[in-house]
Amino acid sequence: MTEVRSNATRIWLLHAAVIVLLLAGNFLLPEYHRGMFSRALVLATYAMGYNLLFGYTGLLSLGHAMFFAAGMYGAGLPVYHLGWDVPLVFATGIAAAGLLSLAVGVLALRTTGVAFMIVTMMFAQIFFLATLYFTTWTRGEEGLVLQPTTRAIEFAGNTISLSDPSTRYLVALTLFAIVLLVSLRLVKSSFGRTLVAIRENEERVRMLGYNVFATKLLAVVFSGLVCGAAGAAYGLLFGYVGSGFASSQYSILALLYVLLGGAATTLGPLVGTLFMFYVIDYTSGLTSAYLLLVGVVLIILILFFPKGLLGTIREKWLPWLP
C-alpha cells in the first residue's frame, strides 16, 4: 500500500511541477515564445478535452472542432454583436458547446466504431458549413475581429485587458491548470475507471450493471464542455473568431496532438501540442505547406508509435504515469 501512496504523491508532485514550470515561463520566456506558449496552452486544453473521449473512453471522434468552435462562437458572437461582458460570454461559450455535445452525443452514440467516426465528422461538417452559411453574423471565412476594448474585464476598479501578453499567458495557463487537475482527478476516480473499462470492453461493463450509453454520453458532454471552454478562451484571448476553427482540420489537429503526446495520458496533450507547434514553427522556413507535415507525422505515429511519446515512456520506464 505504501507503494500506492508514494505513487499518488509522485503524480501530484509531477503535475504541480509542470504547472510551476509553465508559470515561470511567463517571466523567463522571450516574447515570441511566450506568445507561442499562450496559444499552445489553450490548444492543449482543447486536446485534453479530446483525450477524455478518445484516450480514456476509446471513442474516436473526427468532429471535435465543432465543440471548440461552438465555444468560440458562443463567446464571440455575443461580444461582437451584443457587447456582452467577458465572464458572461465565456459562460455562454461553454454552454453552447455543452448543448451541442449533448445533441451530437445522443445521435452519434447510437453508432459505434467507424460509423461513429464518420457521423461525428459529418456533424462537424454541418457546423462548419453553418458558420459559412450564416455569414451575416459570422462573416464566414473572413471571421470576426474582437476589438481589445471588448476583451477587457472590469475587476475591483481595475481593467484587466486580455490583449496584454502577460495577462493572456496567465489566463491561458490558469485554464490549462484547472482542466489538467480536474482531468487528473477524474481519471483517478470511479467515473474514470468506468470510462477506461468501457474502452476495454463495453459489453462487460454493461453486464456489471452500468448504463453504458448514459456514461458515454456524459463523457461526450464533459469532453465537449472542456473543448468549448478552450474555444471560448481562444477567441477571447486572441481576438479572432473564424470558420477555419470549425474546419475538419481542427478536429484532426486534436487527434494529432493526443496521438503524438500519448492517448490516455494526462500530460500527453500538452507534450503533443508543444511538440507539434515547434516542429511546424521550425519547418515553416522550409515549406508553407505545413499540412504536409501533419500528414506525415500522422502516418508515422499510427505506424510506429501508436502509443505516442508519453505512452511509450509509460510502457517502458514509468508505469505509474497517469
Binding site: 473499462a197 476495454e200 470492453n201 459489453e203 462487460r204 456489471l208 452500468y210
Partner: peptide, 18 residues
C-alpha cells in the same frame, strides 16, 4: 472477459463502485 489491461483491483472495484 476480465479487463485484461486493468489491475485485478480495478476489475473488482468496477462492480463494487457500481
Amino acid at each position: 472477459s476480465v479487463f485484461a489491461n486493468l489491475s485485478v483491483y480495478d476489475n473488482v472495484a468496477l462492480p463494487v463502485q457500481r
